[in-house]
Design a protein around this nucleic acid. Structure first.
Length: 184
DNA sequence: CTCTGGATTGAC
DNA sequence: TCAATCCAGAGG
């Protein structure tokens, strides 16, 4: 994906990512759910400025920001807007497209719906981990490509999930009617 | 150094 | 509804 795609207002990128394809090696899925985290957002890791963990958020757009959480899981974000701002989009769910058996083995689950229906789940299914932090997503094994164009009327905007601060913001986007999202 | 809580998940 | 699990960030 062109770097220009990510160099836009973060809420726009979060919406535009729906219908794109996230690929790592032989595994891939269509993005069906995303959340935006802005620089002035109390829920964002970047809210209090640059730290060792979040420094990639302040790097150039189009990079992967991968972090470890709750002692078990990785979360995958794409850095957006402009270099130095500190914004990103969290990918929360994918509709599996390829590499089903690899993903089943990694997830220890059979059902397609169980493979990528959550931020930690999709990282596990695609094999995304700490070594991917900071990687550009335009080429290489881990990358994002154009796939489906989602019409505006099929995009639902809602409150974010799993956070205490900033849960009032409608910064979550998902594809209407898609059964692979993390939660209603 | 210690302490606290988390952009989650899966089992109960 | 709730515990597992461990690390980043903050404070002393």
């Amino acid at each position: 994906m062109d770097k220009l795609f990510f160099s836009k207002p973060t809420l726009d990128v979060a919406k535009n990512l729906l219908g794109c394809k996230l690929i790592n090696g032989k595994t891939s899925g269509m993005i069906v759910e995303s959340e935006a985290y802005l620089y002035n957002d109390r829920a964002s890791h970047s809210f209090k400025g640059k730290t060792e963990r979040n420094k990639v958020m302040f790097d150039s757009p189009g990079r992967a920001y991968v972090y470890f959480i709750y002692g078990n899981h990785y979360c995958f974000n794409v850095v957006t807007n402009k270099h130095g701002i500190g914004e990103a989009v969290l990918l929360r769910a994918l509709e599996p497209l390829s590499g089903f058996n690899i993903m089943r083995k990694r997830r220890k689950k059979e059902e397609l719906k169980e493979l990528c229906s959550g931020p930690g789940k999709l990282c596990s299914a695609l094999g995304i981990e700490k070594k991917h932090n900071g990687k550009m997503l335009n080429n290489g094994s881990l990358r994002i490509e154009k796939f489906n164009k989602i019409a505006n009327k099929n995009i639902i905007k809602s409150r974010r999930i799993g956070i205490s601060n900033g849960s009032e913001l409608y910064h979550r986007f998902y594809i209407k009617g898609n059964i692979f999202i993390s939660r209603k």
